[in-house]
Amino acid sequence: MNTSSVLTPTVLQRLVQEGRAPRLLDVRTPGEFRTAHIPGSYNVPLNTLREHRAELLTHLDEDVVLVCRSGARAAQAGQALAEAGLPNLRVLEGGTVAWETAGAFLERGPERWDIERQVRLVAGSVVLVTGLAGIFLPGAHLIGTAIGAGLTYAAVSNSCAMGVLLSRLPYNRGPRTDIRTVLAELRSTP
């Protein structure tokens, strides 16, 4: 997505205060959404959005702002919806992190670690353990090297296999997003 499709937290706050808030689609996992989200946003996880984008298009005829933790997943969602023909897409610059840093309110639920933090914990732990094990087991350090290669690929491709795997753990799933419920809410909200 190009830079003109980005909306700053300050501008979004002003639109909300003026009663001109766009539709907010939060593309994080249900667990992340439950932990903290912008009031009035709809949770449509990235994989659900990709799978049901045609159905969503019929209910998203006005301005849409995509939200995630930092903006990366929202940009991916924006690309998927733009390819499907949805105009007026914007991504919240810096995601919920920037929103909160700007002093805006987040609705909070039970606290949990976000996926990015979990990836850092798992990757760092594997590298640490295999590095130490390499002292006694020749070649064990190669597992850490493979993790490093995977993280490098994740940065270059803007995707993360470890994050996808971690998001499937029961801890991260939370209540499953039902697309029919989301569509009904989109229909009923002016």
Rank of each mutant, 00 (worst) to 15 (best):
A184V: 14
R53E: 09
T8D: 01
D63V: 08
G103N: 07
L81W: 00
G150H: 03
E93W: 02
Y42T: 04
L66F: 04
A155H: 10
L121Y: 13
R23A: 07
A54H: 12
P110N: 13
L56K: 02
Q17G: 01
G163S: 11
G144W: 02
A155E: 10
I143V: 05
L121T: 14
M162L: 14
D61N: 11
R14H: 14
G150P: 01
V65S: 09
A184W: 12
F105H: 14
E100S: 06
D63W: 06
T8E: 03
E100I: 02
Q79L: 12
G40M: 04
H141N: 09
H141I: 08
A104S: 15
R69Q: 05
L12Y: 03
E32V: 08
G163N: 06
Y42F: 15
A21W: 05
R168V: 13
P30R: 09
S41P: 01
V65G: 07
R90S: 06
Q13V: 04
S188Q: 15
C68S: 05
D61M: 08
P45C: 02
L66S: 02
S159Q: 09
L24D: 00
A84F: 05
D63Y: 12
T96G: 00
L49N: 01
G109M: 14
G131K: 08
V126N: 00
L186E: 04
G78D: 02
L60F: 10
G139L: 13
G134A: 05
L92G: 01
V127M: 11
A161H: 07
R23L: 06
H59L: 04
V65F: 11
S5A: 15
T58G: 15
N43R: 03
A98D: 06
R50V: 12
N158A: 08
L7P: 00
R173F: 03
R53F: 06
L49A: 04
A72W: 04
C160D: 09
G174N: 06
P175K: 15
S188D: 15
A102Y: 08
V156G: 00
P30T: 10
S125Y: 13
D114G: 12
R168K: 13
A146D: 12
I179A: 03
T145W: 13
G31A: 09
P110M: 12
R117K: 08
L183E: 06
Q17E: 05
Y153K: 09
G131L: 10
L106P: 00
R53G: 06
L57T: 05
R50N: 11
R176V: 09
S41E: 00
G71F: 02
E55Q: 15
I135W: 11
A82L: 07
G139R: 13
I143M: 02
P87N: 10
G134S: 06
L56W: 03
S157W: 11
A155S: 11
P30S: 12
P87D: 13
T130G: 04
R50C: 13
P30H: 09
A149T: 13
V127P: 03
F136L: 00
A77V: 08
E93F: 02
Q76W: 06
A146S: 12
I38T: 02
R50W: 12
G174L: 04
E83A: 14
A82E: 07
R90M: 03
S4K: 15
D61P: 05
I147R: 06
G19S: 10
T10W: 07
R20A: 14
G19F: 08
G40S: 03
A77Y: 01
T10E: 14
